[in-house]
């Protein structure tokens, strides 16, 4: 196989991988801000059918929002 083709294959494989630009799109950045300032709406944006989040990410963000909310309530209760 020629070097050019092999290099091209490698670049194709790299493109199939998740890139930084994929996780920092405009819509996603807004969702991240909502998760900090209003976690329930942030979670709604993560789980909505039009969301850009991939299946594994939906799982992890759900877990994180739940943990954040529990900690937030605990902090308010305990002062």
């Amino acid at each position: 196989m020629s070097l050019t083709k092999r290099g091209g294959d490698l670049n194709m494989k790299e493109k199939q991988e998740l890139q930084v630009t994929d996780v920092f799109t405009k819509s996603r950045i807004f969702t991240y801000l909502w998760i900090v300032f209003c976690p329930p709406y942030g979670l709604y944006r993560v789980l909505s059918p039009s969301s850009e989040f991939r299946r594994p990410e939906k799982w992890v963000w759900t877990m994180i929002v739940i943990c954040t909310l529990v900690t937030f309530v605990k902090l308010i209760i305990t002062g």
Binding site: I35, V36, P39, T68, L69, T71, F72, L75
Partner: peptide, 8 residues
């Protein structure tokens, strides 16, 4: 709010 988000 920030402490909770950091913890989570």
């Amino acid at each position: 709010m920030f402490t909770a988000a950091n913890y989570g």
